[in-house]
């Protein structure tokens, strides 16, 4: 966990970048809340900033209602208390044990991580980051290039693998991704690696046949390695809006998603939709991506995340 400490710093640096870019005169909501007495107008401001962070109407309304109730009962009277209140609420939403990467049972190998998501969310880059993270923990990693659909996708993963010095199992362009998954599992077993990460093609959650393909990949993997995939990560673009909730629901149905990798949090988007997702589906966020290099990854920290929600 000491490893986490250094990461929080990185997270803050990432946010700092964002903040610096946006400070242009606009006062952060945090500034607005600090040292102020709470009133209805301030609660309205808070509501707006939650909506602006993509938290969504339903979740925002329920948060705001509870704040309003606390305010009217006299339990909360200042802006600072509001921040603490929201932080506590969200921290409860994501207990620490929920956020660890799921693995194979002790003594057995490999842990299989299936990575999914809609098109363009950053699956391949996120895999490079995960790979780097696992390697820095002293684990051996093998990659499976199951995106046989998009032009250049296999090559993209290969380039990352060369840079990170790990091996890739691949199939032919246009081939059956489940067959690649099968080969990758065999290779992972034969080589005794610690972790096998499977990259899949981006697919819109509305494309039923493509979603069924994920189910097939899962069953092929499970047949070879009982209990696998141990972790199924959904990569979510932090810039996405309310639609991400539908993505989470559909991917959970077809692919049994167990965790979220929230990518592209280094921009100005806040990724507030993950709150609504936790509310509706109980899928926890496990990692966040904060840049283009393999080092730009962190374990998800709800405290820092909430802080960033209010940074404007």
């Amino acid at each position: 966990m000491a490893f986490l400490g250094s990461l929080v710093n990185k997270f803050k640096q990432g946010l700092e970048k964002t903040r610096a870019a946006l400070v242009g005169g606009a006062q952060g909501l945090r500034n607005l809340l600090t040292g102020r007495r709470l009133d209805e107008a301030l609660i309205d401001d808070l509501e707006r900033s939650l909506l602006r962070a993509d938290v969504g109407v339903k979740t925002t309304t329920s948060l705001i209602e509870s704040i309003r109730a606390e305010f009217r009962s006299g339990a909360i009277t200042t802006g600072d208390q509001v921040i603490d209140f929201v932080k506590a609420r969200l921290r409860d939403l994501w207990p620490a044990q929920d956020r660890a990467l799921l693995g194979a049972p002790a003594g057995s190998r490999p842990t299989v991580v299936l990575v999914t998501g809609v098109n363009g969310v950053g699956k391949t880059t996120s895999i490079a980051k995960l790979c780097q993270l696992l390697r820095s923990q002293g684990k051996s990693v093998l990659l499976g290039a199951c995106d046989t659909f998009r032009a250049g996708a296999v090559r993209q993963l290969e380039i990352w693998a060369e840079r990170l010095n790990v091996e890739v199992v691949k199939g032919a362009q246009g081939g059956d991704p489940a067959a690649v998954a099968f080969d990758a599992c065999s290779a992972a077993l034969a080589r005794g690696v610690d972790v096998l990460i499977l990259d899949t093609a981006g697919r819109l959650h509305t494309q039923d046949p493509l979603m069924r393909q994920l189910t097939k990949i899962r069953s092929v993997v499970a047949k070879q390695i009982p209990g696998a995939p141990h972790e199924t990560l959904l990569v979510l673009d932090a810039t996405s809006g309310q639609n991400a909730l539908r993505q989470a629901e559909e991917f959970q149905k077809s692919a049994g998603v167990t965790g979220i990798f929230l990518s592209k949090l280094d921009g100005t988007a806040k990724g507030g939709i993950v709150i609504a997702i936790k509310d509706a589906t109980s899928i926890p966020v496990k990692f966040v991506g904060l840049g283009e290099t393999p080092e730009d990854v962190q374990a998800f920290d709800p405290g820092v995340f909430v802080e960033a929600l209010f940074a404007e």
């Binding site: 909506l51 602006r52 962070a53 993509d54 809609v118 363009g120 673009d237 932090a238 810039t239 996405s240 809006g241 309310q242 639609n243 991400a244 921009g267 100005t268 988007a269 806040k270 939709i273």
Partner: peptide, 12 residues
């Protein structure tokens, strides 16, 4: 622009 973008679409 990704049609699924949220509130941040405006900023970018």
């Amino acid at each position: 622009v990704d049609a699924m973008t949220g509130q941040d679409a405006v900023n970018s």
